[in-house]
Design a protein around this nucleic acid. Sequence first.
DNA 1: TCCACAGTTCGATCATGGCCGAAACATTAC
DNA 2: GTAATGTTTCGGCCATGATCGAACTGTGGA
Lengths: 241, 241
Amino acid sequence: MKEGPDLARIAALIGEPARANILTALMAGRALTVTELAAEAGVTVQTASGHLARLEEGGLVVPRRSGRHKYFALRGVEVARVLEALLGLAAARGHLRSRPGPRDPSLRAARVCYDHMAGEAGIRLYDSLLARGFLGPAPEGLALTDAGATFVTSFGIDLAALRAGRRRVLCRDCLDWSERRSHLAGALGRAMLDHMLGLAWLHRVEGSRALRFTPAGRRAFDAAFPPVEDWFPEGSTPQAA
Amino acid sequence: MKEGPDLARIAALIGEPARANILTALMAGRALTVTELAAEAGVTVQTASGHLARLEEGGLVVPRRSGRHKYFALRGVEVARVLEALLGLAAARGHLRSRPGPRDPSLRAARVCYDHMAGEAGIRLYDSLLARGFLGPAPEGLALTDAGATFVTSFGIDLAALRAGRRRVLCRDCLDWSERRSHLAGALGRAMLDHMLGLAWLHRVEGSRALRFTPAGRRAFDAAFPPVEDWFPEGSTPQAA
DNA sequence: TCCACAGTTCGATCATGGCCGAAACATTAC
DNA sequence: GTAATGTTTCGGCCATGATCGAACTGTGGA
């Protein structure tokens, strides 16, 4: 009927909740696998795979194969800028996601992000490690400092094993959408979560991405990863947990 | 589940074909009535009304009542910029509307845009009037010059009647989406089309917005509104908006 | 007053497209 | 080789939402 750029097509591509979640997750600037994106989008892998095929066909994302993984990233900064513009417009119009639904509070408190911890607790862990100088910036993003290596080892992580099986980046920051801040991902993020699950500090809620702390686990977590305020008001002194 | 701006909601609002057409039509920067927008979007008035309610609720358009008409316009330049960004991305990705479908060629050649003529013929008429100085820029957009008044009167338009019934702007430019240039709307645009229909230069195609010239009508039209090239072979080309 | 026109609401239909289970396919580990 | 993991395809179910006819409201003109 009309000609010109197909506004509807590109916007519809972005305007589907699962795909929007995928794109939002990719706004962190990193390439993520199909499985990771499925977890971020809250859909199964098959569904995410289909969505990613459409996004790729629409020129919004680009795939990159690496072994048996398929990583997807946004196709260039141009796409990111458009998404930012849309996010800004949505924010200006007061369109925020998740009027706190029934099971949302628990998800915000702590949840699994693929294989590591996200939500308020995930932010807490990340900030606490960062504030104490256990994590630091590195050329490729994020690295464990020497003090951090000591800390996580004393926490119970087998760092040597993690570094030996170098099939995965040790530290990675993952943008958290309930807080819009980074939390810890990567092999270490996974190991930390696994370890805390093993310690029974918390457990997965069946059929959900939510994580629920036990009362004792909550206390132990708070002690091990105190809020940043406790560390930043005056000085930089680390402390044993 | 997540928080932050609701990308999906705003994009889905834009990503519905009828709504995208409405928004694209409003990109011309003018306020249009529900009926006009319905014609532009290719849907009935009821449907357009519903869409406009959603667009308004989503903060993308603002209504303004004027008599029994309800005009809609984009809500600020911010919205326009986002739409431009999306259009640019769509164009960059090669997403053009209408792989020329079955009945598209005739629509591109000449069609009704609410009550006036659009398409290649509409552009031709507009450019031809402009090139000969019959139309000129005015504070509120577009105005008929004295020479233009003489011309349209000799063409057979009852200009006095048009000006008497001042329920509508005489001249208005309307952005043409098959050419992405302006064509003539307003009371004069309507009168011109009506007159040409009365002269049987062309007729409406049943069940479509397409207009079909008779062979004689085509010749007469070409004579009355010669291509701009014939009038500005060398220089001093005035510009459309 | 009656009529014409612009816009909205309601109800029912219906198609698009998202979703997941199951199973195939692909790659790497053992 | 077998097993495990990651990804894709297929098929069918199902909900969302676009669409239009019809009826209603409201405004303006004769």
